[in-house]
Design a protein around this nucleic acid. Structure first.
Lengths: 342, 342
DNA sequence: TGTTAGCACTCATTTTTATCGAGTGCTAAT
DNA sequence: ATTAGCACTCGATAAAAATGAGTGCTAACA
């Protein structure tokens, strides 16, 4: 059997309708609702074929049809109309993302919020791994008798400020130490800042040996805590409105998974870094998410892929819209992080 | 009719059992499960009386009884056994809260997490309103060509670090400006830092007039953003396990309310500042929360009440445990913020 | 006079049965 | 090849029946 043009037309219409209504689509519905110029009986025959070909599924004998993962895949790859975002929406996004925002984390956070809000799905982001980026600047500022603030600037543009419990420091000592550290650490990645390297400073600044000895373990612990990948989820509340989650238990298990950094990292680990990645149902490779799809994309800072931003929701999502929004966000982030605005 | 001792004993047992099982309690259950030395028939008579007195409610004729808000109130005020926290739990809390944590926000955040985790309820906190506290220190640090980090230290112990988009600044200019600002602003609250006051600095440092002109609007906008009360919710996922939320719609409306800062502020606005505040059902004064209770407490920094931390969940909560945990957290926070550890 | 065994009664919940209707597959006519 | 027509399927909804936990009341008892 062959997938002729008419079959594809029918498949497209079925998926469009199912995305819209969340109800299995029957032959009569199609015949009435869409002017294909063929009768329900003909459509029925074609539908039977489409099912045999694996693109449709019948939940039970007397129900309409529902797209299979393969059906969605064909739809996404070949059938759907590529929407372009409206000018209004584009301006809205740019406006919000460029508005007085100067911290990279904020931009990314806000992007995820926008994604979630515009698609009614759940958005997630990973921030650039601070650890792997190079140190471009560093400051230590005494803020009171017992606290010092450590400021680290990465070449990715991320700035971290951390409080250290550090008594009896003078600003002069901190400045001197920072100065030497910067010289010896510049251009090394943050994870490469070892106790040994910090210890070396003592040779250059013997007069501050005791301060340095005190500082080293504090610094080590603080830097170790940066080890992790930052991962955020936005729009979790949208899950309450998915008709696919009828009862609290299903909802809970979905939300648990989406919130689990480990799980999401594992799922994302084999995503390609280029272009938009779309995973449909089984393709995700996670039993608990067989009815979900993920649309995600890498964003670049200084031309390097450093993080991922995307959406997760029921397989029955408006791919066309979702893809256009995700793509526009990616584009906007690239522009922002290319240094034009930030 | 009078509430004699036996009635109270029975009421206590009923509430204990209901808190435990979440099922209406019948006379036979009590007679079998608790050795009160009276028959189910007698208990039945007493239960009818307790209902007439308003302490119990019968969901329907052929069901057991459930405590009313008044029943819970009596239970909390008079009947329940005041639990003391186990030594293990106490050590766990202290350990976690004192472990290398030096930022006040972190301590409070972690406290809320602990509350949620130990009670399986939902915890909320408000942070000290930064705005209303006095400025004790201030720094501006140039971190690259286009960014300056502003560090503000409040007398509450809270430290805020904010990035400003600020080109062409020299560290010398920043230091000079900060120095003058500190002298003129010290001991005023942060909300009192007006454009006018900052503008005055130009008189003292005419050589930096242009830098100051550039800084003023940026600083104003940044400080305006601090206007809000910080409000956090922890343990939202626990709501999925409350048997009182059978369907997704109920769950959603509860979670929406709990997440709404405005709503929670309104609810908390008339809470007394001293001791543990317990609001049961209708006492909350919010229709959507008639089946919930709130246990909350103010915590002090430097002897002043600056924020609130508490729990919200179904009225059917283990008040004894909840109260002991909340109280111990309050005590621990007081100790920490009294400056002993921080 | 307070307590309790006994029993009829109530009513939410569960189980069973009946009805409905959307949608299908097949056949025969066009 | 297309389509009208029709018997059939089966989930969903509704109605009916069975179940059982729990009550209130009465009468006997200590």
């Amino acid at each position: 059997m062959t997938v002729n043009d008419r079959k594809l037309k029918i498949l497209k219409v079925i998926i469009d309708d199912f995305i819209d209504t969340a109800q299995p689509v029957g032959s009569r519905t199609i015949a009435k609702k869409y002017p294909l110029g063929i009768s329900s009986a003909t459509i029925r025959n074609e539908m039977a074929d489409l099912e045999e070909l694996g693109y449709l599924i019948q939940p039970h004998t007397s129900a309409g049809r529902v797209p299979s993962d393969e059906g969605y895949r064909l739809y996404v790859d070949e059938l759907m109309k590529q929407k372009k975002m409206g000018k209004n929406d584009r301006q809205l996004i740019r406006g919000l993302l460029l508005n007085k925002v100067i911290e990279m984390e904020d931009v990314i956070h806000k992007s995820a919020q926008l994604l979630a809000q515009m698609t009614d799905l759940i958005a997630f982001v990973t921030l650039p791994q601070f650890n792997k980026s190079k140190l471009t600047n560093m400051k230590m500022v005494k803020i009171n008798d017992s606290k010092v603030m450590l400021i680290l600037v990465a070449d990715s543009g991320v700035v971290k400020s951390l409080q250290l419990a550090f008594k009896n420091a003078t600003q002069e000592a901190l400045d001197a130490i920072t100065d030497v550290m910067m010289h010896s650490l510049l251009d090394s990645t943050i994870e490469d800042i070892t106790v040994k390297k910090i210890g070396m400073i003592k040779n250059v600044l013997p007069q501050y040996a005791n301060v340095i000895d005190y500082l080293v373990p504090i610094l080590r612990d603080t830097l170790n805590e940066l080890d992790d990948i930052d991962f955020y989820v936005e729009g979790l509340n949208n899950a309450f409105n998915f008709p696919e989650f009828q009862n609290v238990a299903e909802l809970k298990s979905f939300i648990d998974i989406v919130q689990s950094k480990e799980m999401m990292m594992r799922i994302m680990s084999d995503s390609s870094d280029d272009g938009i990645g779309i995973r449909i149902g089984k393709e995700i490779g996670e039993d608990a998410l067989t009815n979900c799809s993920i649309v995600s994309v890498c964003y670049k800072v200084n031309g390097k892929n450093v993080g991922r931003i995307g959406l997760i929701g029921p397989s029955r999502m408006d791919y066309s819209k979702v893809i256009s929004v995700v793509d526009y966000i990616r584009e906007t982030l690239s522009d922002i992080f290319a240094g034009i605005y930030l």
